[in-house]
Nucleic acid binder design. Sequence first.
DNA 1: CCAAAAGTGTTCTCGATACACCCATGT
DNA 2: ACATGGGTGTATCGAGAACACTTTTGG
Lengths: 226, 226
Amino acid sequence: MTRISPLAQATGSDADGGFAVDVRTVLLSVIDGGLKVAALPDADGWQLPRGVPLPSLPLDAAARMLLAETTGLQEDYLEQLYTLHVRDGDAWIILISYLAIIAAGTGSPGTEATWIDTRSVGFSEVDRMVLDYAIVRLQAKLGYTTIAFHLMPERFTLTELQDVYETVLAMALDKRNFRRRILAANMLEQLDETRRDGSHRPARLYRFRADHDPRAFLTPQWADGV
Amino acid sequence: MTRISPLAQATGSDADGGFAVDVRTVLLSVIDGGLKVAALPDADGWQLPRGVPLPSLPLDAAARMLLAETTGLQEDYLEQLYTLHVRDGDAWIILISYLAIIAAGTGSPGTEATWIDTRSVGFSEVDRMVLDYAIVRLQAKLGYTTIAFHLMPERFTLTELQDVYETVLAMALDKRNFRRRILAANMLEQLDETRRDGSHRPARLYRFRADHDPRAFLTPQWADGV
DNA sequence: CCAAAAGTGTTCTCGATACACCCATGT
DNA sequence: ACATGGGTGTATCGAGAACACTTTTGG
């Protein structure tokens, strides 16, 4: 293996010592009509759930474990975002970021963690960039994957689904066009049940079709742990 | 920072020692009508250029340096692909992969490295996966970015540009539709010159417009080294 | 009968595709 | 004159966007 010269020999923290590695996960959910991120309290604000991965477990397993330990939640979807190299005090760390998604109503984050609105959360500059990138990725994937599946309960109405799309995309959508596109995409299965909700016509219930792989395109087919 | 428990304390190669990190770069170019990858000889075949990054330099700088050292070439475009966690003998390494692009005719790789056709190169399983993912990314980006810019010399004909698209996409394209789309995309600037090439009508020369950012979408706006 | 959300169709525009012939040059 | 690659236009189709009224229920 090539040792990148000339500086590698001169530093004390290269391959001899190894690198400091930090996994951070952006856990998103749509709650109370807002896009929320799971955050932990911090000296002056909030921070993303983070941790040092185990050397012999795949990185995505580390992302899952750290979510379990900091929030007590088990995500429904996980994908790697990007790897940064950032300054941490006077050292440098390699920061591997993940996007995780959990359906609303699956439970509240544990002791320390809280759901905070993504628009107002007080993160460090790095955490803010990672969060913004996670949101952009999620928005893009709504368009060409079934990733929205992981934001919904098992059964839902088309209006509820549209509300989630509108919250994540931060824009209003036309009801008729939305329904036509969603149904044409063949992701959904219509149920026989309806839900009575208030003093108006009941809504038909749907669920996502079982035979659908919601991972696609941006994420390589092979995952970690090869 | 959360130490992911319980195993982290039990192992000897966690944050105390740090992680083994390996940067690998897929350097692609279109040469002699084929999509080629820069490869280095290996015990039983070929391998991607690789190296251990410097701890205090951004990761993309490490990818650039390792290309310079192994191939002597300076890439025209670089973007991070994905971070894997792979077994290396009995240890695990964190493998950060990059996609790099260089224009044809910029020079031949140095002493050890060679351009090998991507379809037939004898890589390890991991290098093969990284290469395949790099190609998929490049193919996708041809469609919605000006990344093709980096595969072309400064001035070129529309037929040369179409040949590069066809090589990367591994499919034939309709000449009239290709020209209409490319010109409609407003990436190109028509030059006054033409090029006489053989016993046929000379071709008009084009170049890419200066005011174009070829990075977009999949790569976050912020790079490494924050 | 009224309020409130559910549900439904048509028109238009634009981008993508399929497809075949004339043009300028060198030999 | 002919061989060779350069260059052009039109018809069709499908996806996406704009847009308003009827239906069903509870109170």
